[in-house]
Design a protein around this nucleic acid. Sequence first.
DNA 1: TTAAACAAGAGGAAAAACCCTGTTTTTAAA
DNA 2: TTTAAAAACAGGGTTTTTCCTCTTGTTTAA
Lengths: 215, 215
Amino acid sequence: MKTHEIIIVDDHLLFARSLASLVDSYNEYTVKYTFQNGSELVDKLAAGMALPAIILLDVKMPVMDGIATMKWLKKYQPDAKVLALSMEDDEKTILNMLRNGAKGYLLKDIQPSLLKKALDTVLEQGYFHTEQVANTLMKSLNDDSKKKERIQLKENEIRFIKLACEEKTYKEIADEMFLSPKTIDGYRQHLFDILNVKNRIGLVMYAIKNGIVEV
Amino acid sequence: MKTHEIIIVDDHLLFARSLASLVDSYNEYTVKYTFQNGSELVDKLAAGMALPAIILLDVKMPVMDGIATMKWLKKYQPDAKVLALSMEDDEKTILNMLRNGAKGYLLKDIQPSLLKKALDTVLEQGYFHTEQVANTLMKSLNDDSKKKERIQLKENEIRFIKLACEEKTYKEIADEMFLSPKTIDGYRQHLFDILNVKNRIGLVMYAIKNGIVEV
DNA sequence: TTAAACAAGAGGAAAAACCCTGTTTTTAAA
DNA sequence: TTTAAAAACAGGGTTTTTCCTCTTGTTTAA
């Protein structure tokens, strides 16, 4: 029976080696290579190496870390199946890896048996996540909807911002809000000042970053 | 021992009733009210009714549906703990409910025993999600990172768009790209045409929706 | 090889966005 | 009841954006 090829990318040699022997102990999987950082992997892939079934990718590495590697893979090898490995369950990092196409996020302190399940699940379903990571994910969805309004905006200002994110002129916005264009101009200027932006583009980006408008 | 109060909001009376008796059968929980739509709930809350421990909220309802209700709650009762109930596992809806603060998303065809676990978990951890929903969540994270570039854009056009999402004038963008402002103007016009947007705001929104720029 | 498509760029002009300094009216607070 | 801040609005000027048409040189495809 043909086994699935695995590549391990991790700068901690000891860990990488033991992980490799663990993976090799499964009948269905074989470790093809272990690399010490992202750019070793990228080099080989760029040189024409075929994608393995799954890449186990450490997040924190010197030279080219997990996130940089994911970005490269997303662009040039979007079909790569990557399981991220990490010491810490930092929310931002998890999101970043997953958003860039990682199929799952494993903490390094998981039960070895879980690794097998993770590999199997990724091949079958395309995704794998632990309870813990899923929780973090859920939380993040909510947090950013809460951490809104660090600067308290008035009802009308928010209405204005939302309209400013559409393809409308200020004149049209004024009509829609039943206010004079000059008042709208005042809103605009005031918001530029308090939000520290230079033009309407900045206002739109602020609105998106702070969840005032849905993307 | 004091039980946790539950409110059920569902327009299907038969379902609501049986759900209520199921919840009441747990020692730790008591159904306080059942409402037939979101606005009944909102009315009571607006009139000063205290929040229950958990609200079980149907997604598809007449008058005021789950999403509208979540939006109201997010604004006026952000501490409400809501478990969404739904017949279908539509990706958009799930995201929408969770983004608006739902603590979990239960499909109506789950095992009754899972409901108990869901209630317990929400109270303990703040969140509950089934395997299935978590999967949907993961998938959505990735799908939108892939569905990029439906319209094939040139390297330079993408560079321009990215800069157009910053607070720069076209003159500044031209300098940065070592091109004449008139060439930049050409890029702009061409992109407006092919992307079907009316102004730079539309361009920025397109860029964000299609993952050309990170938010 | 000739025509078509394309990229870079120019001129000119109207529309929209931006900026500053004011006045009047409302609203809220002392 | 007086005062003061905030909201609505105006005038008027500068800059940027947007739109249209046109030229020139380069690839590309028939």
